[in-house]
Amino acid sequence: MMIPMNDKNIERRNLQISGGSTYVISLPKKWIERLNLKNGDSMKIVNNPNHSITLFPDTIIQKTSSHHVIKIKKTDSLESIKRKVISLYVSGHDFIIVKSPRSKLETDVRSMIIKLIRTKFVGTEIIESDSVSITIKVLTVNPEMKLELAFNRMYKSTSNMFFELIHAIEKNDLEYAEEIIQMDDEIDRFSHYLTRNLVMSLDDCNILSQLGLEKTSQVIGYKRIITCVERIADHISLIAKIVVNPQNNLKNIPKEIIPEYEKTITLFDNIMNLVSERDYVNAESFAMQIEESLDNISEMIGLTKNNENSVISKNLLYENKRILDYLLDVCEVVMNETVDSVVSHNESEVIPK
Rank of each mutant, 00 (worst) to 15 (best):
L198C: 08
D58F: 15
S341R: 14
T135Y: 02
Q210Y: 06
G212I: 04
D7L: 02
P49M: 13
E337N: 11
R153Y: 15
D340S: 11
K156L: 11
T264P: 05
G92P: 09
R12I: 11
E256M: 07
K8Q: 09
R322Y: 14
C205L: 15
T59C: 07
A240N: 12
D76A: 00
H167K: 14
I297K: 07
V333H: 00
Y193N: 06
T75W: 04
G20L: 05
R83A: 13
V244H: 09
E349Y: 12
E337L: 08
R34V: 00
V98I: 14
E214W: 04
N282L: 13
N248K: 03
I257T: 09
M5P: 01
N152I: 04
N50W: 15
I257H: 07
E170Y: 11
N6P: 01
T119A: 02
V109E: 11
E291C: 01
V24G: 01
T140V: 09
T158D: 03
L37D: 03
K82T: 12
R12T: 07
Y326N: 13
D173L: 07
Y89P: 09
S276A: 11
T64Q: 13
P4G: 06
E277R: 12
N273S: 14
V46Y: 05
L116G: 06
C331G: 03
V141A: 06
D325Y: 07
K314F: 00
D58L: 11
D41S: 12
E262R: 15
I169M: 13
N306T: 14
G302I: 03
F268A: 03
C228K: 05
V330N: 00
I207D: 01
K137T: 02
N47P: 02
F95K: 10
R224S: 10
V69N: 08
K353I: 05
N249M: 05
H192R: 05
E284F: 10
L37P: 00
V69F: 09
E175I: 07
K104W: 01
I32Y: 06
K74E: 15
E179K: 14
L274Q: 06
F190Q: 04
S103Q: 14
P246V: 09
V342R: 14
I17C: 07
N306E: 15
A177H: 04
L208I: 05
Y318G: 01
K146D: 07
Q247Y: 03
T54M: 10
H167S: 10
M335Q: 15
L147H: 09
T59R: 15
N172C: 02
D329T: 08
K73Q: 11
K29C: 00
I207G: 01
N307H: 13
N36Q: 14
